[in-house]
């Protein structure tokens, strides 16, 4: 086994995912302990330019016209071959739509241990410790990085994306693409994001609702507040899945990323998948009856008031202040 740490460079339609920068930052912590190099693994077609600005010691590039778009089968088989031949100490992926399935399948196929939901890595007592974030951000689990080649899937929040950037260009080594048969999964087409009536990424004030809103008829109350504030309504995943708001108003991992001046979170627990989409908001005010709700971690102001009691008061006062 080598001491190198591999980082899968996740990219989609010409853009590198932020989780790749976070993974590079985490990989650096591990590499300092093992004495190995941080190696960026770039799979795709005509994408070598994407390696610029990444904090890797070197880049392994596999260029294949068939890998121009993400194809689970082909990516997994190619990376399995690479891990077999290079035997890195660890391979890091983002816990994303693309990364999670590659990481899981590689672990299963190659019989490698997998540490999931990795939030932070750190060195301790000659060991590499990994802290995973589970239970919607309510529990952290510390484990030792297994001693064999290990697959790790990373979540945001622990390492800074800026630590995964570099001004120095890493040398790129091109390795030939392995032969590959007919993939069992094939991309047919992309479906562009639904364009909603309002663009929540451009609003100064967002009123966000989560499961705590309880009933569909309560959505109107939140809408009334959003209108009184001259802002817009958005929501976490459970609300969208219930069909109470259109998917164009979803904030989080598979929804929009927003950075309003004020983000008023009503009954939103603050699961990591949601926080990913709103953590950069200038001011976050959270209303949640659960004092252990992780939303209070990213909030600047919080209250344990019951939102259904608070909302009518707030609407009245906002309207009065607005009218004045």
């Amino acid at each position: 086994m080598s001491d190198d740490i591999h980082v899968f460079i996740e990219h989609l339609r010409g853009e590198v995912a932020e989780i790749t920068l976070i993974s590079l930052a985490a990989a650096r912590v591990i590499a300092e302990q093992t004495g190995g190099e941080v190696v960026g693994v770039l799979l795709g077609h005509d994408v070598q330019g994407l390696a610029a600005g990444l904090a890797a010691d070197r880049i392994l590039s596999i260029d294949d016209p068939a890998a121009g778009d993400y194809s689970p089968d082909l990516y997994i088989a190619t990376l399995a071959g690479l891990i077999d031949s290079q035997t890195p100490r660890a391979v890091l992926f983002g816990d994303t739509s693309m990364g999670a399935e590659i990481a899981g399948c590689l672990s299963g196929r190659l019989g490698l241990p997998l540490v999931g939901r990795c939030h932070t890595v750190r060195a301790a007592d000659d060991q590499i410790r990994v802290v995973s974030q589970i239970c919607g951000g309510k529990i952290f689990v510390e484990s030792a990085l297994p001693e064999s080649t290990v697959v790790v899937s990373m979540v945001p929040g622990g390492h800074r994306p800026d630590d995964g950037r570099s001004e120095t260009a890493a040398p790129i080594e091109t390795i030939p693409a392995p032969a590959f048969g007919e993939p069992r999964v094939a991309l047919k087409r992309y479906v562009e994001p639904e364009i909603g009536e309002i663009d929540i990424t451009k609003e100064d004030v967002l009123v966000a609702i989560g499961r705590g809103i309880q009933l569909e008829e309560n959505v109107e109350l939140a809408e009334e507040l959003a209108q009184a504030l001259g802002g817009a309504l958005c929501a976490s995943r459970p609300i969208i899945d219930q069909g109470w708001l259109p998917s164009s108003q979803m904030v989080g991992k598979s929804g929009k990323r927003v950075e309003p001046k004020v983000y008023l979170a009503l009954g939103v627990s603050g699961a990591p998948e949601h926080v990913e989409g709103m953590a950069s908001s200038a001011t976050v005010i959270a209303v949640n009856t659960d004092p252990a709700a992780p939303i209070f971690d990213v909030a600047h102001y919080g209250t344990e008031a019951d939102l259904l009691d608070l909302l009518p008061e707030l609407i009245d006062k906002v309207k009065a202040a607005g009218a004045g």
């Binding site: 989609l12 993400y70 094939a186 991309l187 047919k188 992309y190 479906v191 994001p193």
Partner: peptide, 13 residues
């Protein structure tokens, strides 16, 4: 589903 509301239609055997 991909981030940002983008989706991909795929065919799987």
């Amino acid at each position: 589903e991909y981030p940002g509301g983008l989706a991909a239609e795929m065919e799987i055997a």
